[in-house]
Amino acid sequence: TFYNFIMGFQNDNTPFGILAEHVSEDKAFPRLEERHQVIRAYVMSNYTDHQLIETTNRAISLYMANL
């Protein structure tokens, strides 16, 4: 899942690491979701930090390219 992918960046001092920290603390994050459209919609609806949203979009693109 995307959640498992992004958790691989925990403790990294990178934008993906920052995203992983936010996702791990977000109890409502769709952890079992595999459809990138649902993940993107969730982030757009629940996150207000523009940098975090952009990082999510980049992470989703990388995740999709590696499926």
Score class of each variant (00 low, 15 high):
1 T>N: 09
2 F>L: 05
2 F>A: 00
2 F>R: 01
3 Y>L: 02
4 N>R: 08
4 N>D: 14
6 I>Q: 00
7 M>R: 05
8 G>C: 11
8 G>R: 11
9 F>L: 04
9 F>V: 02
10 Q>H: 12
10 Q>W: 13
11 N>I: 05
12 D>G: 07
15 P>S: 10
15 P>E: 14
18 I>S: 08
18 I>F: 10
18 I>L: 13
19 L>C: 02
19 L>Y: 02
20 A>V: 05
21 E>M: 15
21 E>D: 13
21 E>F: 14
23 V>K: 03
23 V>T: 02
24 S>Q: 12
24 S>H: 13
24 S>R: 15
25 E>C: 12
26 D>C: 04
26 D>H: 05
27 K>M: 11
27 K>A: 12
28 A>R: 11
28 A>S: 14
29 F>H: 05
29 F>W: 05
30 P>E: 02
30 P>R: 03
31 R>G: 03
31 R>W: 06
31 R>C: 06
32 L>D: 14
32 L>C: 13
34 E>S: 15
35 R>V: 05
38 V>E: 09
38 V>N: 07
39 I>H: 01
39 I>S: 00
40 R>L: 15
40 R>T: 08
41 A>C: 11
41 A>F: 08
43 V>E: 00
43 V>A: 06
44 M>E: 14
44 M>L: 12
44 M>R: 07
45 S>R: 10
45 S>E: 14
45 S>D: 13
46 N>V: 08
47 Y>W: 14
47 Y>A: 02
47 Y>M: 04
48 T>I: 09
48 T>S: 11
49 D>T: 06
50 H>C: 11
50 H>F: 12
51 Q>E: 13
53 I>D: 02
53 I>W: 10
53 I>C: 06
54 E>D: 10
54 E>W: 06
55 T>A: 11
56 T>Y: 13
56 T>E: 03
57 N>C: 11
58 R>S: 08
60 I>N: 00
62 L>A: 09
62 L>V: 10
63 Y>R: 02
64 M>F: 08
64 M>I: 14
64 M>N: 07
65 A>C: 11
66 N>R: 09
66 N>T: 14
67 L>R: 09
